[in-house]
């Protein structure tokens, strides 16, 4: 008998700390499957952020570096410049990448660092207990926007993918979601493309993955999937934002 479903080699057997219904687990698995399929598990170095995925280094069966809040693209730059032939990726949440680490991600893209960034956007700060994120939607309630986010004075949500796609250094930028099997399949394809862009030496690649946070959104896992579709998709449209065969550096 041939097993049809097994743990990817790029994941460890450690049980994750993620809440029930959270889609971090799916995204971890997609990355691990892609790494296995590309046959680069022993050539890959991952960078985990500060946020819910701070312990990602325990779950990936890879060489990993844990970065300070927002600094993963800088850390990845340091690693990649030392090991240009290796595969380097960052795994970052919305607070990490789009608030405290905005400068780092923008400039890593501008330099067209040959790294891959997986950007998990769930429109909230998860680990610290549900505070407003840079991607929190207007009217969305959070611990620090208890009446719902208002454009004044709390500002508008940031569309990271569209913003980064304007940079000449960005080679591949896509936004995907994991709220149903079809989208999960598309997400995996995008993640694979992003890794392939790096391996071909084309340039900076980022995949934004819309994700759920049932705990801090205050709903069940099923409700959270519905909430994502109804509220996040209109603000964060899915699709490939940039796909450049080559970037001129």
């Amino acid at each position: 008998m041939r097993p049809v479903f097994h743990r990817p080699e790029a994941l460890t057997a450690i049980k994750t700390h993620y809440c029930p219904g959270c889609t971090h687990g799916i995204i971890h698995r997609l990355i691990a499957e892609v790494i296995d399929e590309l046959g680069v598990r022993e050539e890959t170095i991952g960078v985990s952020p500060v946020g819910c995925s701070v312990l990602a280094y325990s779950y990936f069966n890879l060489d990993m570096q844990q970065a300070a809040h927002g600094r993963a693209p800088a850390v990845a730059t340091g690693i990649k410049r030392v090991h240009p032939q290796k595969v380097v990726f960052t795994y970052q949440g919305d607070g990490d990448l789009a608030a405290i680490g905005t400068a780092e991600i923008v400039h890593a893209a501008a330099r067209s660092e040959k790294i891959t960034t997986i950007f998990v956007n769930n429109a909230i700060y998860g680990m610290t207990g549900g505070q407003m994120a840079p991607t929190t939607l207007l009217r969305q309630k959070s611990m620090t926007s208890p009446k719902g986010r208002e454009a004044a004075p709390q500002g508008y949500p940031i569309r990271v993918s569209e913003m980064l796609a304007t940079l000449d250094g960005a080679a591949y930028i896509a936004r995907v979601s994991v709220h149903n099997p079809q989208e999960v399949s598309k997400a995996k394809k995008a993640i694979k493309t992003a890794f392939e862009y790096q391996m071909a030496g084309i340039g900076f690649a980022l995949v934004e993955v819309l994700s759920t946070c049932p705990t801090n959104w205050g709903c069940t896992p099923t409700e959270s999937l519905k909430w994502l579709v109804e509220n996040m998709l209109p603000v964060y449209p899915l699709g490939v934002k940039k796909m450049q065969r080559e970037v001129s550096i």
């Binding site: 170095i45 960078v47 570096q65 970065a67 300070a68 600094r71 800088a74 850390v75 990845a76 730059t77 340091g78 690693i79 990649k80 410049r81 030392v82 090991h83 400068a103 780092e104 923008v106 400039h107 330099r111």
Partner: peptide, 21 residues
């Protein structure tokens, strides 16, 4: 390799990455 970073913070974190590597 010489990289002029976008900030002092980015620079030291690049050092972190390279040293870790």
């Amino acid at each position: 390799v010489f990289v002029q970073a976008e900030s002092e913070i980015a620079a030291i974190n690049m050092v972190y990455g390279a040293a870790g590597a």
